[in-house]
């Protein structure tokens, strides 16, 4: 009886927010410790995309724990004749949306929630890949040393596009993507919540 009265005292939205806040520490901990495994598909997708789209710039892509190392074909400069440029990108910076999506999904606790978690995870992988690749391109095409930037051969508008892709992929996409995916996958939950307002 007591739990029932507690359950009806607060609105469904309030209970949902409380549930999200309770799930977040757990999902963040799981994400952090399982990240090397969870982010393996993202690293694999990054490898495929860079080999297909930037094969002249990227020689190899390697995942080490939560970082991706891009081994490029670029040389550090004339002073270092035999060296090559490598760029490390921390995938955690672009994947904190995974625990947010998981907390939202677990708090909503809809039918087939585990399937929703899997689909959401799969959908968010390309968003993570976007951020990591844009970060890499920004490093070699914009913020790198002049000797490195000049070897990439990117035109002015291409560098502008990379800058926008990086800003969008770091400031907007990692946080917005999980919210969008969650809303799209929880329409009936949202409808029910509105009806009980």
């Amino acid at each position: 009886m007591k739990s029932a009265s507690v359950g009806t005292r607060f609105s469904p939205l309030t209970r949902f927010i409380a549930a999200v806040l309770m799930w977040l520490p757990l999902t963040f901990a799981l994400w952090y410790f399982a990240a090397p495994i969870l982010l393996w598909p993202a690293a694999a997708l990054i490898d495929v995309i860079t080999r297909a789209g930037f094969s002249d710039l990227v020689r190899a892509v390697e995942q080490t724990s939560t970082a991706v190392t891009f081994t490029t074909t670029l040389k550090p400069g004339q002073a270092v004749a035999r060296g090559i440029v490598t760029v490390d990108v921390n995938m955690l910076l672009y994947s904190f949306g995974l625990p947010l999506f998981a907390a939202l999904t677990l708090a909503a606790r809809e039918h087939k929630w585990s399937r929703t978690l899997m689909i959401g995870y799969a959908v968010l992988i390309p968003a993570i890949a976007w951020g990591v690749i844009a970060d890499f391109l920004k490093n070699i095409a914009i913020t790198g040393p002049v000797q490195v930037v000049s070897q990439t051969g990117f035109s002015s508008w291409q560098r502008e596009t990379i800058a926008f892709a990086f800003q969008f992929g770091s400031l907007i996409l990692p946080a917005v993507a999980p919210a969008i995916v969650w809303v799209l996958m929880h329409r009936s939950f949202l409808e029910r919540m509105r009806r009980t307002s």
């Binding site: 939205l13 927010i17 999200v20 977040l24 963040f28 955690l92 910076l93 904190f96 949306g97 625990p99 947010l100 939202l104 990692p174 946080a175 917005v176 999980p178 919210a179 969650w182 809303v183 949202l190 919540m193 509105r194 307002s197």
Partner: peptide, 23 residues
């Protein structure tokens, strides 16, 4: 800075939007 607050701010935006839709 890099992870927790980013998620919390987006959760705030989502909650504000949900409340607004309900009203």
């Amino acid at each position: 800075h890099l992870y927790v607050w980013q998620a919390l701010i987006m959760l705030d935006v989502l909650v504000v939007w949900l409340i607004w839709v309900r009203t």
